[in-house]
């Protein structure tokens, strides 16, 4: 089993404050990992290091055979292989949903417009909002916007999908539609790393669950094992608070 993501001894500081402490993690292709933990534990920072939206100071991160460092050329190529869904959706308000999705395929992958639009419509159908394709983000509900954001990321046909608390900014009744789209994606065999509090989703889809606290990986176990027999006290405390 060769890993598609290999994180070894990674440390990161924001000024004086150490936000990641000696992180070691390996992710195999098609694996689904859920990362949970209290706020400030560094989970978002960790996944943002994977597509280099944040830079780590110590240790190595290898994504699909390429090591991420300041000497990495064409960081954009790597980012094209790794898709990300944000907590705040971050759709481009001045473009229609369709244009949001076709923007990167046209400009980065140099796809002809027609081909890009066909691809976009396919992805939008997968997340069940193809009828909103010509609307603008401001005209959609939160759940629809997040699903559109998912489609946009998938249009680059990435090998890895990162999710940074995708449902934390949604009203309760819209969380389900987004989670359904993510479950659908998981079933198709995508490698996914999801930072979330939605433990129901973790139980259904995740292969491994990681608990982080204060910048360290406190516990890492197979899903069933993680929920049935949490080993560390901190994990037990956290689980008791959210379940």
């Amino acid at each position: 089993m060769s890993s598609i993501i290999k994180i070894q001894g990674v440390n990161k500081w924001f000024g004086d404050f150490q936000v990641l402490k000696d992180i070691n993690l390996e992710v195999a292709p098609k694996q689904k990992i859920v990362v949970c933990g209290p706020s400030g534990s560094g989970k978002s920072t960790l996944i943002r290091c994977i597509n280099r939206l944040e830079e780590h100071q110590k240790g190595t991160i290898v994504v699909d055979g390429v090591e991420l460092s300041e000497n990495t050329k064409n960081i954009e190529q790597i980012r094209a292989e790794v898709g990300m869904v944000f907590q705040q959706f971050n759709l481009f308000p001045h473009l229609s949903i369709l244009d949001n999705c076709t923007l990167a395929p046209i400009w980065v992958k140099k796809m002809p417009k027609k081909q890009a639009e066909e691809l976009a419509m396919k992805q939008l159908q997968q997340v069940k909002i193809s009828d909103q394709a010509l609307k603008f983000p401001g005209q959609l509900s939160g759940g629809q916007q997040q699903r559109a954001a998912l489609a946009r990321a998938l249009c680059m046909q990435p090998k890895i999908m990162l999710f940074d608390e995708p449902t934390s900014a949604l009203d309760p009744e819209m969380i389900k539609e987004v989670l359904d789209a993510m479950v659908n994606l998981a079933k198709q065999g995508m490698t996914m790393i999801v930072v979330t509090h939605e433990m129901g989703f973790a139980k259904e889809v995740a292969d491994e669950v990681i608990f982080m606290d204060e910048g360290m990986i406190v516990e890492k176990a197979e899903t069933k094992e993680f929920f049935a027999n949490p080993k560390s006290d901190r994990t037990k405390l956290f689980l008791s608070q959210i379940l």
């Binding site: 954009e76 898709g83 944000f86 705040q88 481009f92 923007l103």
Partner: peptide, 15 residues
């Protein structure tokens, strides 16, 4: 322009 716009654009591979 919120910071997230820049991040989202970067995350889909735009230079």
């Amino acid at each position: 322009i919120s910071k997230g716009q820049k991040e989202a654009a970067a995350s889909i591979g735009l230079n």
